[in-house]
Design a protein around this nucleic acid. Structure first.
Lengths: 211, 211, 211, 211
DNA sequence: CATGAATGAGCATTCATTCAT
DNA sequence: GATGAATGAATGCTCATTCAT
C-alpha cells in the first residue's frame, strides 16, 4: 500500500510552477498555452491536471508563493526597530540590484510584466480577478499592520488611517514600479530615491499639522 | 478603372478604428475578435483586410489614436490655472462619478481597463511598447514643465528634480487608479482624499528641509 | 456587393443536418463528435459553426424539422371529419410499413433511438432539457387542440381534460414505441392494433359514465 | 505465495458496483468517470482494473444487478391481492412522494433517469441491449400471467391477448413516467389519476363489446 | 469594392487506461 | 494487492486569415 509521497508531489508541483513561470514570463498568461507549459515541464498535457485544477490555479499557486515571500519579509521587518525605514531600504535594494546581476533584473522585469498581465486578465476573467483581489487584500493588510505599528511608536503620522494609507501606498509603489518599465531614460537609482522621498514625506510624523 | 479614393479610404479606416475601440474597450485587445469588430463597423470579415493587414495592425493604429486623445486631455489640463488640483480632480472624476451617470462610470472603467491592457500588451509587443513609451514620455515632459513652473513660483518644493518627480508622480497616480479597480472594500472618496494628501505632501514647499 | 444567398445557405444547413442525422443515428448525441459530423458533411470543423452555434443547436434544428412535419400532419388531420380516427390510422401506418421498406424501418428505429438519447441527455444537460421540453410541450399542445375539437364534435369522451389527456396519451404512445424497440418476439402489427385499442378505449365517448 | 481469496474478491467487486451505481445514478453512464467511481469506492484509479476490465464491463455488471432489484420489486407487487391497483399505486408513489421526503424524490428521479440512460445505452451497446431486453421480457411475462389470471376471474376484458396487452401496458406506463419528467406545467397528481383512468378503461371487462 | 464561405490550427480540459513501484 | 503518476488522444469550440465570386 504505497501511499502518496508528499515530498515528490510537492517537488513536481514546484517543477511545473517554475516551468509555468518561464512560459508566462515569455508569453503572458493568455499567451502561454497549457501545452507549452507541459512541454517546458516535460509532462503530458493531461498530467498537469493532477497537480493543478486549471490554468488559473497555476497562477494562483504562483501568487501564493509570492505571498509567502512577502510574509517572510514582512515578519522580518516587523521585528526591526523601524519597519518603515526597513521597508524603504528594501524597495531601494530590490530594484537597484540591476547593476551587478543581469539575470535578476530580467526576472524582476518578467515578474512585473506578469503582474500587469494578471491585472489585465482580471478585468475580463472573474477567476483571475478573485486571485488578484485576494492577493492585493492580503498584502494591503500586512502593510496596514506595519503602518499601525509604526504609528504606535510615533515613527509616522498618527492621523493617517492605516488601511487607506496602505492602499494608497501600495498603489503608488506598484504604479512607480510599472512606470520604471517604460521610461528607460531616467536613472533607476534616482527614481527609487525619489520614490523613497515620496513615501517618507507622505508618512512623516507631524505631516498632518501642515495639512 | 475606378481608382481608390484616398479620402474615402482614410475615412473608412477611421470608422473601423472607432468600432475597434468600442470592442477593445469591452473585451480587451485579445478578447475582441475580428468578427466582432467587423460587426460593430458593419463591414464583412474579409473586407477589413483591405484596410488593415492584421489584427496587430489595428491594435497599433488604435493605440496611437487612443493615446492622442488622452494626451490632448492632459495637455488641456496642464494649461488650466491650477493643474495639480486639476489633476487630482480629474482622478476623482474618473473614479467617483457614480452618483449621476452610471453609463459614464462603466465607460471610465472600460477606459482604465484598456489602459492596463495596453500596458500588458506593450510587454510583448514592441510596436505597442513604443507607442506607450512615447506617450508616457510626452505626458511626463508636460508634467515636468509644469512642476518647474510651479517651482519658480515657489508653489512647490524647489529641491525636487522636475523630471524625476514627474515620473514618480505619474506612476503613483496611475498605480492608485489601478488599485481602486480592485479593492472595493474601502471608500472611494476617502481613497481619493488620501491620494490628494500624498501628492500635496510630496510636493509641499519646504519639505526638503525635514529630510 | 454580393449579398448572402439564403437558398444556398439553407441548403448547406440541410446538408449538415442530414450528415449530423447520420452520425447521431450511428453513435448517439454524445457519441457523435462535431468532427465526425464535419467529416460526414465534408466541411471543416470550424465552418460548422457558421451554420450552428453549438452541438445542441444542431439537435434543436433537427427537432424543429420534426416539429414542422408534425404540424403538417396535424393540420391535415384537423381538416378531416374524424381526426382521432386519422391519428390512429397514421400510427398504424407509420409503424407497420416495415414489411415493404427496409430502409424506412431502419430510419424509424434510428429516429426513436435518437429520441431516447435526447431524453437521456436532457437529464444531465440543461440545454438539451430545454429543447426536449419545448418540443414536448408543442406536440402536446397540438394533440390537446385535436382532442378538444373531437370533444366538441362528440367523437370522444367530453369529460377528459384535453391537456392532461394529451400528456398521458403522448407518454403512452412514446412508451409503447420505445417498448417495441426491445421486444422483437411479438408481432409489430398486433402491437399497433393493441395500442390503437388502448387509445380508442381511453377516449371513447361515454367512458366516463362507467367510472 | 498468497493466492487470491475469491470471496474477498467478489465482495470487493460488489462494493465497487455499489459505488458505481451511486455515480451512475448521479451522472449517468457516460457522465460518471472512472475516477469518480474509484473515489466513491475508496480505491485507487488503477486498482479498479483488477476487478473490471473496462468501464463497459462495469456498466454491464451494474445493469444486471440493478435490474434484478427492479424485477424483485415488481415480482413482489404481482403477488399482492390487487396487483393492478398496486401497480398504479407504485407509479403514484414513485412520482408524488414529494410531500414528506425530498431526498427520496431525488433518488426516484435519479433512478428513472438511470433507466432512460440504460435504454439509450442499449441502443448502441449490445450487451446492455440484451440485459434490458431480458429484463423487459421477464417483467412482461409476469404481467401477462397476472392479466391471464384476472381474465379467468372475470376482472378484466377477456378478449385481450395477455402478452400483447402486457407489452402495451408496460410501454404506456413507462412512457407516462418519462413524460412526467419533462412537463412540469401539469399537476402530477392529476396526471396519475389520468393514467389510472387509462389503464382501467383499457382493461375494463366488457370493453371489447363496444368495438 | 465587398461579401461571406471556408479553413485549420489552436485552445483548455477530460478521461479511460497503463505501468513502475 | 494496491498505489497514484503518467499518458495521449479526444472533446466542443474559437478565431485570424484567405479566397472565389
Amino acid at each position: 500500500m504505497r501511499k502518496i509521497d508528499p515530498v515528490k508531489h510537492e517537488q513536481k508541483r514546484r517543477d511545473i510552477l517554475e516551468a509555468a513561470g518561464r512560459c508566462f514570463a515569455k508569453d503572458g498568461f493568455r499567451g502561454a498555452s497549457i501545452s507549452s507549459i507541459c512541454s517546458e515541464a516535460k509532462i503530458s498535457a493531461g498530467h498537469l491536471y493532477h497537480y493543478f485544477a486549471s490554468k488559473e490555479a497555476i497562477i494562483e499557486a504562483m501568487a501564493a508563493t509570492g505571498l509567502e515571500h512577502a510574509e517572510q519579509r514582512f515578519n522580518h521587518l516587523m521585528k526591526s526597530d523601524n519597519p518603515i525605514e526597513g521597508l524603504i531600504a528594501e524597495i531601494e535594494q530590490a530594484n537597484s540590484q540591476s547593476c551587478n546581476m543581469q539575470q535578476h533584473q530580467i526576472d524582476m522585469r518578467a515578474k512585473k510584466q506578469l503582474h500587469v498581465d494578471m491585472l489585465a486578465e482580471a478585468g475580463r476573467n472573474p477567476a483571475m480577478a478573485e486571485i488578484v483581489n485576494k492577493h492585493s487584500a492580503k498584502i494591503r493588510g500586512m502593510l496596514a499592520t506595519l503602518l499601525e505599528t509604526a504609528q504606535k511608536r510615533g515613527q509616522i503620522d498618527q492621523a493617517l488611517d492605516p488601511d487607506l494609507a496602505a492602499a494608497i501606498l501600495l498603489g503608488a509603489m506598484e504604479g512607480v514600479g510599472n512606470m520604471t518599465m517604460r521610461d528607460p531614460e531616467l536613472d533607476m537609482k534616482k527614481k527609487l530615491e525619489m520614490l523613497s522621498t515620496l513615501i517618507k514625506r507622505f508618512l512623516a510624523p507631524g505631516s498632518s499639522k501642515e495639512k
